[in-house]
Every structure is written in C-alpha cells, then in structure tokens.
Amino acid sequence: MSFLIFETLNKKFGDFVAVRDMSLSVERGEFISLLGPSGCGKTTTLQMVAGLLPPTSGRIVLDGKDITKTPPNQRGLGIVFQSYALFPHMTATDNVAFGLEMRGVGKAERTDRARGALDQVKLGQFVDRYPKDMSGGQRQRVALARALVIEPPVLLLDEPLSNLDAKLREEMRIELRLLQQDIGVTTILVTHDQEEALSMSDRIVVMQQGDVAQIAAPLDLYERPTNTFVSDFVGKTNLIQGQITGDNEVNVDGTRVSVDTLAHTHGSSVTLSIRPEKFQMSDDPSGHEVRVEAAIFLGASWLYRVKGSMGDLFVTQPNTGSAGYAKGDVAWLGWPEGALTLFKGAQ
C-alpha cells in the first residue's frame, strides 16, 4: 500500500469546482510535483493535505491512517509556505524551534536541534537574526529548516522558490532536491514553473482547471504528453492542425507529413505537436522549406520564427559560435522519427 493516498478528492467553493476527482498514490520518499497554471487547483489540493481546507468529498490516507478529518495541528506535516510565513517577532532559531516546543521538547534540546537544522540549510551564521534582517533566500531556508526539524512524514512545498530571483532559484532547485534525497522525506511540491517541476520531481501531476491532465515522470511527460494541454504547458511546442489522409500520413494545408497514425481513424482531424528544439535547420534544400521571419539570440541558443507551407513555427537551434540565420533567409527543416506527437481532434 502506498504511503500517501488521495482518494477521489473533491473541493467545491459554492458552484465552483476547484479540484475534481483527484486520485494519487505517493510512495515513501517520493518527490511529487503538482504542476499547473494559477487556478488549476494545485494549491487547494496542498491545503487539503495540510488540513487547512476540508475536502468536499474524498479521503486522504497517510501511512495507512485516514487523516481526512485530522486537524492541521495534529497531522505533523512540514510545510513551506509561498510567503515563507516566518514568525516576524522570533529569531531564526526560535522560528525553527517552535514546532519542537509544541512537541514538548525541552529548551536546551530544541535550541540544539534548531541550530542543527539551520546548519543543514547553511544558515549556521544567522541563528539569532530576525526575518526582517534576512534576504529572501535566507528566509526561504529558515522556512525549510522549520518544516524539516520536526521530522515530518511528508514535506509540503507551496511555490517555495517563486519569490527568489532567477539565479538563486536554480541553485535552490538543486540544493533542495539533494537535501530531500538525503533525508528521504516524502515531498509534495506545488509549482506553476514547469522547469522547477521537471528538474526536481520523481513524478509530476499536471493539473488543469481542477482536473488531473497527466501523471508521469519528467522525461515521459516531456517526451510523451498525452494531450495538447500538457504538451503546450510543459516545455514549448508547435501545435499544427491537420487531417489524416492515409496510412501514416497527415495533410497540413496541402503539405504531407508522415507520422505514425496507427491509433487514429482515417479522415479524422488531428493536432501535431513538435518541440522547437527537435527541428534540424539547414541550408541543404531537403525537407520543409521555410523563410525566417524573426531571429532572436538567446545566448545558449537561437530562437527563430519561420513561415512555410505548414504555417508559423518556432524553431530553437543551439548556438555553435557562428552567426545564425537572419530575417528573410530561406532554410529547410528536418526532424527525426518520433519527434512528432499526434493528438486526436483540432486544437
């Protein structure tokens, strides 16, 4: 039996359905991300796990025990809030020691353990600082130490990195993931940042308007999205409308594209998805002819918007040190087998 189980969780606010029939089984030590745009129900789900919101229906089972009705102060879960929610009138140590105090740990021991936890998140220097005297990154670490020091069975992270600047955010992703693997704590991360979810998780739950759109490991999710929402939301993609005109053949505005059509009926409308970096762009006149409409240099790569008989496409090519294509250039696109994903129906 899985460590943490959501059984057809539902949450309604009046007529509005925030979460619909959410079911998920999380293994011990697993890192799960709830990923989706704002309003998709991911934070609502987290709050139900935390006990801060009662589900309208469904059950939450932790380690074999039904905790659906357990009040938040008896669940013992570690939570890092988006705002960090540090206690502004307490030092870093007192913040971290608070949970231990609530568990009746003696003063000397809890100060010791709080300092140990702060050491673990590299804040050994700042044990007596107040939150207002700390940087965003430091506050974030205090919040993490506070959540971890109580040795929670599950760690809940609500957009923990969204208030950090881009560079710090990337460092913290790695650090947080290493720490989590080190401790082995079961973790649920809520985020709208697909890179964050891809880089940290064992599995990702993509949510859309209260529904689960797909649950998969990061690579699977990226390479084999099961619907256009996931393919568009996770990573960038080109969505192309077409019609199946023959075995392994899709007609896009007169251009015939060969792709595996096994699962689809002849003559039906379909949407093709191909990621910008899957294209190979060359001067060799073979493949799909396009004209460059815009060229943007991104440092590590080039981003082009090109126009051809299949319509507008985005193409990413690695920067090899030489000048890229310029506006008005003509080029040819090719792609490897399997780069195209086919979805039923028009977008």
């Binding site: 009040p71 102060n73 939570i79 109580i150």
Partner: peptide
C-alpha cells in the same frame, strides 16, 4: 496574513497557542 498562523498550526500549535504566541504579538 493568515500564513504565519497557519504555519504555527501545522507545526502543532493549538488554536489558543497560535493566538497567544503568533497573532497577539
């Protein structure tokens, strides 16, 4: 913000403790 209070609650504080230790200060 209710965040700090929720944080205290999830750390195991009773409602009264949350009021005395977090809200009131």
């Amino acid at each position: 913000s209710t965040d700090a209070e929720n944080a205290a609650l999830t750390l195991g504080a009773s409602k009264f403790t949350v009021f005395r230790r977090i809200t009131l200060p």
